[in-house]
Design a protein around this nucleic acid. Sequence first.
DNA 1: TCTGGAAGTTACAGACCGGTAACACCCTAG
DNA 2: CTAGGGTGTTACCGGTCTGTAACTTCCAGA
Lengths: 196, 196
Amino acid sequence: MTDGVVERSRPRDRILETARDMFHKHGIKGVGVDAITEAAGTNKMTLYRHFESKDELIVECLRANAAKAGAMWDAFEAEFPGDKLAQLHAWVRKAAAMLNADGRGCDMANAAAELTEPDHPARLVIKELKEAQRERLVALCRGAGIGQAELLADTLSLLFEGARVSVQTVGAEGPSTQFVRMAEGLIVSFRGTAAG
Amino acid sequence: MTDGVVERSRPRDRILETARDMFHKHGIKGVGVDAITEAAGTNKMTLYRHFESKDELIVECLRANAAKAGAMWDAFEAEFPGDKLAQLHAWVRKAAAMLNADGRGCDMANAAAELTEPDHPARLVIKELKEAQRERLVALCRGAGIGQAELLADTLSLLFEGARVSVQTVGAEGPSTQFVRMAEGLIVSFRGTAAG
DNA sequence: TCTGGAAGTTACAGACCGGTAACACCCTAG
DNA sequence: CTAGGGTGTTACCGGTCTGTAACTTCCAGA
């Protein structure tokens, strides 16, 4: 499992990585700090030497997720330099792959569902990342020469978000199976009305 | 607040209604049975006389949500008898209204995010309701004379689901503002290719 | 070799959790 | 009037939660 992480790395990194994994699988309120530290091969005191509270650990985990997502966008640019349309199609493929990865939805969305306090520190991070992802998608659509770039980006964004919660509720054999078809169809449709 | 509910009704009904409200606002794991019974103007013993466990209470709350959703569909049929296309547009309007109701997403989806155990009794109820809703939407699309009824229903379904999590993460001023425009556009587009 | 800081260990505090036992009460149906 | 079921009250159980204190161990760098 996470033994590879446990083996050789700093306790802080092991805790962060283990917490990300366990929060993803079991939810935030479904995992205690004791369970995290034990799975990370360390102990609670060490956790509290590196993170001042569980809430801060949660925030750091979400930030780590954001960083990973950012790397994904960079990979699109690296694979298809300058070709924004190709990058957009790469995003569709990547999104579809995420749907089949496991039955769990987006960590950000799940965290938002669990952390209901309006002033919880995690909510700001969640909003920031989601807005950043939206801007990335808008930039791709605009760069691909699509007229109503914002509308297409928002539509694709909602579709993907919906597909992720769909796999979490009815499973991978539900409406989410049509995601690629929907997304590609929308891109074609929006490209056809580029002058709009 | 819920005082209207507390005033004159059976303890079981008060508990159920109060639990629905509190689960919706604060999440399932964010509310204890003590808080529910206190808000419902009763006590824990009475709760456990009517529900054998918190899990059963959760399931009953979700079933009550399902019943309420069913009533919504019936209202569409009552308002536009036989006119499936009008009912479909009514669904779009109703969905948009839900987005602006409060910052919380779908109770079913949120519950699925929180209750990660694969054999949790609530997961079955969630899946059943989501599938029932999908069938209702497919029936509406088919009845409206749309060729690819399943595809349109799934697309609208994912859009709505995505919009609900979007308001929960970035707020009501995010991509979800475009929901009606997207949905109406899709309906027009699918009607245009009815022969498909 | 010595030292200082990071990490591990054990125990604990205080709160909350879901769930139960025992008992007093009240209100309605007969 | 009386009997009984639904309800309220109090106290409690065992477990888990976040977070802390005090102490020991280890290891790298000077």
